[in-house]
Simulated assay, not measured.
Amino acid sequence: MRHAALPLGSLLLFLVAWQLLAASGTWSDTLVPPPAKVWDAFVTVSTTHDGVRGYNGTTLVEHLGISLRRIAIGGGIGIALGVLFGLLMGTVGRLRALFEPWITFLRTLPPLAYFSLLVIWLGINEEPKVTLLAVAAFPPVAVSTTTAVAAVPKSLIEAARALGGSRWDVVRDVVVPSALPETLTGVRLAVGVAYSSLVAAELVNGLPGIGGMVKDAANYNNTPVVLVGIFTIGVSGLIIDGLLLRLERAVVPWRGRA
């Protein structure tokens, strides 16, 4: 109860401050709608109302599900490639010198900087969206895995080789377990980066999709629906990060203890 009291208290304080700000009349309802209007918009986009199903014929849950599928495919590809490149660059110095500048260059680019190029190359369907999310998720995992692999104590590697371990045995039994905690941290960061790139990925032909819903509602100054989309992205992101944190604790229970 004590752990739940602070988050619930901060949420209640936020809602009270929001209501007071909306009721003050400083800004119009279009700019700062009251919480009741946002709740009505949430109910409207989540159900069939007056013969209209959700937003643009798709309910909120379906919008979110389509976006999560894009993140799962694109982010999954980026994470898998990031782990593979991280293992290779961490163990082979020449590969690190070859690829690390390009990965750093890619990591510093905002998604909008290359999304238009992806649309030109791949069209306006699912390919540029999935590719952008994969490109966004790749650098954090590659960097964290490379750093973790390079930081594995040499004494452990030499001890494993002295006991007759092959190169594969050393990688499987020494390098991977040692690098796994930092790699999972990189995975959490990659999922966060992919999620933050979601609206950018759905700028073009993003409906159905939660980011596309936010973009389309913004075009019509439909602020309540925009806020519903933003809150949905944030809450679902918190849930996903919590699940990844639980997975990390289950997979690497020794972290912080050894």
Score class of each variant (00 low, 15 high):
Ala142Thr: 10
Leu6Asn: 09
Ala137Cys: 13
Thr145Pro: 12
His63Tyr: 10
Val204Lys: 09
Val170Gly: 05
Val174Cys: 11
Leu118Gln: 04
Ser197Lys: 13
Glu126Ile: 12
Ser28Leu: 02
Val187His: 03
Ala190Gln: 11
Asn125Gly: 14
Ser67Val: 04
Ser10Arg: 13
Gly54Tyr: 08
Pro7Ala: 08
Val135Thr: 08
Leu238His: 12
Gly9Ile: 09
Ile66Glu: 09
Ala134Thr: 05
Val135Asp: 00
Asn219Gly: 14
Arg188Ala: 11
Trp102Gln: 06
Asp40Asn: 13
Leu203Thr: 10
Met89Ser: 09
Thr48Glu: 15
Thr146Val: 05
Arg172Asn: 02
Thr91Ile: 03
Gly237Ser: 15
Ala72Met: 04
Ala134Gln: 07
Thr147Ala: 15
Leu84Asn: 01
Gly90Asp: 10
Gly242Val: 07
Ile239Cys: 13
Gly237Ile: 10
Ser144Gln: 13
Ile73Val: 15
Ser67Arg: 02
Ala17Gly: 01
Ala218Val: 03
Gly25Ala: 03
Ser197Gly: 07
Val152Thr: 13
Ala217Tyr: 01
Leu98Val: 06
Gly211Asn: 15
Ala218Pro: 02
Trp168Phe: 15
Asp29His: 13
Ala162Tyr: 02
Asn221Pro: 00
Phe105Cys: 11
Thr48Pro: 03
Ala194Gln: 03
Phe231Ile: 15
Trp18Lys: 09
Val141Ala: 12
Val191Glu: 03
Gly164Cys: 07
Gly51Phe: 04
Val175Lys: 02
Val191Arg: 03
Leu98Glu: 00
Leu12Ser: 06
Arg70Cys: 00
Arg257Thr: 06
Leu245Pro: 01
Ala22Arg: 10
Val152Tyr: 06
Ala201Trp: 03
Val92His: 10
